[in-house]
Amino acid sequence: MTHITLTPNIEHADDFYADLLAAHDGLTKPQSDAYNARLLLVLANHIGDPEVLKAALEAAKART
């Protein structure tokens, strides 16, 4: 089983969340979408491990 952290792992989670919202301040919807896409790619590259990335793609799927 590939290790992907799905338990709380972000220090000062509220601060990160606020930063994430702030990053979108003043952006139009297309700009925000583009920002999210760039952010996703930066984070994915940081993770690097293809197995972890696959597990993340799975974990992010909506439950039906």
């Binding site: 979408d33 583009a34 896409a37 760039r38 996703l40 790619l41 930066v42 590259n45």
Partner: peptide, 20 residues
């Protein structure tokens, strides 16, 4: 298209995006 453009945008500054 949004993801494609994000790769291209990042590729100018960040080497990591170029293989994509």
């Amino acid at each position: 298209r949004i993801l494609r453009d994000a790769v291209l945008d990042l590729s100018e500054q960040h080497e990591f995006a170029r293989p994509l």
